[in-house]
Amino acid sequence: MAHTYNMTYVLIAVAVMAIVTYIPRFLPLTFMRRRIQNRFIRSFLYYVPYAVLAAMTLPSILYSTSSLISAVFGMIAAVILAYRNYGLTLVALGAVFVVFVTEQLMVIL
């Protein structure tokens, strides 16, 4: 199913992303000389990326392939590989490989 895009929308969206990504990078470095003292805010900022990635992964990962079954096997493979500290690329490729094999088997069986 080919997806068509309104290019004006896409380009404006990319510009918006670039600008809001740059804002937190340049504001303190350019203008601030003091350190954040509030421990709650510091802790909050520390946890944010993990919460975001977890929310983005579940449950979307289950619908990221052409069948729920292959996605579940792929996810299990990724969790095991990640738990054993394989790098980003190996974990990603391991999940892809398991999904691929599962889908091949589903065709055969």
Partner: peptide, 28 residues
Amino acid sequence: MVRSALGIAIYGMFLAVIIPPARTEHAL
């Protein structure tokens, strides 16, 4: 078939980012 399997890659990568530090830090 390969393209379908690649759909999971990004989520695999996310798991690879969040799981290892969560093993030792239970708050994470």
